[in-house]
Each structure stands twice: as C-alpha cells, then as structure tokens.
Design a protein around this nucleic acid. Structure first.
Lengths: 130, 130
DNA sequence: GGTTGACCTTCCAGTAGCTGGAAGCACCAT
DNA sequence: ATGGTGCTTCCAGCTACTGGAAGGTCAACC
C-alpha cells in the first residue's frame, strides 16, 4: 500500500503519517523506488493512532498505548490506568472550559451590544481576577 | 514600576510580559538604566490581558479587544461580537470534549483492569472511527 | 571600597503536533 | 514525449509561551 491509500483508509493526512514515521511511531518498509510500503499491520496501527488522537491522547500516550497493544503479555490494568488518567484530564479541561463559559457568558449577557461605547465586557476584563 | 512588581500585580510571569512587548501588545517606557518602566495604564492593560487570556481569548482577539478598550468611540456591539464568537468556540470545544469523554468513558468502564491482556480499550481503539 | 544577592537585560532554543510549500523523482496513460 | 498525479525530502512556520545562558544594575552590608 502506498501512503495515499493508507492515508485514505486510516483517515489521516499523508503529511501526518510521514510525521509519525519521523518520530518513530511507525516504521513502514520501503519499495525499490523509495516509496513507503505499508503493511496491514501499519494500517492497523495508523487507524489506532487516528482514533487515539481523536480521543485526545497525547503522542507520548499513543506511543505507550501502541507498545501495550503490541505486547501480547500486557496487563489490561496498565491500559486502563493510562486511559483513566486521560479521562481525568478531559474532565479537568471540561471543568475549566465550563468556568470560562460561565464567566464570559455573564459578561456577554450584560452587554447591550449596540452603538454606544459602554461595555461591561471590557470593564469586566479590566478588573483583577476574582 | 519594574517588571517584577507589575508581573506580581497583573498575575503574569515576567517572561510573558516581555513576550507581550515583543509582539507589541504593550509598549512600556524605559528607564535610564534600560529597565522597563511600567505605567498604571500598562498595568491595567496587562491585567486585562491576563483576564482575557484566562478566558481563553487568543492573542489576536486580545489585541482586537485591547484596541476597542482604548478606543473611546467604540461600539459595544463590536466587543460583543468578538466575545460571542469566542463563547461559541468554547461551546464547541466543550461539546468535543464531552463526546471524547463519553466514548473513552465507555471503553474504560468495560475494561477489567486486571492482570490479563484482554482489553476493550485497545480493541476499541483499533477499530475505524464509528 | 568590595562583595553578595536579587533583579533586570537580551538572545537563542525548545515545547506539541502538525501543516504548507518548494524542488525534484516515479509512474501511468496517451 | 508529454502531461498529470503521486511520491520523496527538507525547511519553515504556526500558538503562546518557557527555560536557560551570559551579562549589566542596584541596594545592603561589612
């Protein structure tokens, strides 16, 4: 398989796949002409990466997960720990965004949004953090 | 005011303040010794930036907001539009994270997390995006 | 007057995870 | 032979800082 096909099937840009090879997440073989030759296993790994990245795992976590995926004698507890920590991270991010949303939502709500210069958003932003 | 004091009072690292000068968000005066000399207005701007960044506005949005803040003849509708768009952006991010959370939460829930290698998280990540 | 230590300066490099673009082969169809 | 598409490498840039080195300045203490 050439990079175009594998990109299509894994749902990743070719550029990203080359980058993943660069940072050694995958090590595809090469054809005589210098083209990358992807195996079914490579495709599977890339699909895995595509999914994991879409779920917000960092590249380094992806690397760890991929290593576990390849290790037939892994303990599922190791996987669960990484995923669980990431879940907590996501929860923290959601909470942060919620709190931003609440604060900003208030400011926007209180702003007349007309032609006059008075604006509670600007006033609110000028005050030290509460 | 030197950078240390203003950093303390605005709640920003000195490094960040130097960076903000670099990208021309602020233009503090200089003392004879080469030290930056911050005015009360500079402090106010930095407090503004600190708050706006904490609410997730991009630097470029901060620049626009700061310009409006300085423009006595602004229309509050301009401010409200920027803030409203950012609010939508935050909502989109929250929705994305929620959907990640849901998917990942299911996988984690279904994983035994013991010493055995079988792991629905790894299996789930290997499948194409649903 | 000398010395310490805190504070300030600039400049360079690195972070995460790609993405865009240039220059140049390879392959296939006409 | 020619045109178009796809592949290759390499270099630069994105966001918003952050760390660190090398060196100047200031105030205090002995």
């Amino acid at each position: 398989m050439n990079i175009g096909e594998v990109a299509e099937r894994a749902g990743l840009p070719a550029k990203t796949i080359r980058y993943y090879e660069d940072i050694k997440l995958i090590r595809p073989a090469r054809d005589g002409n210098g083209y990358r030759a992807f195996s079914e296993t490579d495709l599977h790994k890339l699909t895995f990466l595509s999914r994991a990245r879409a779920l917000g795992f960092t590249i380094e976590n992806c690397r760890a997960l991929l290593a576990l995926w390849e290790d037939q004698s892994r303990a599922s507890s190791d996987v669960k720990r990484i995923a669980g920590e990431h879940l907590d991270e996501i929860d923290r991010k959601i909470a942060d965004l919620q709190s931003m949303r609440d604060t900003l939502g208030e400011l926007v709500r209180d702003c007349a949004g007309d032609g006059r210069p008075d604006c509670p958003i600007l006033t609110g932003l000028g005050k030290p953090r509460s």
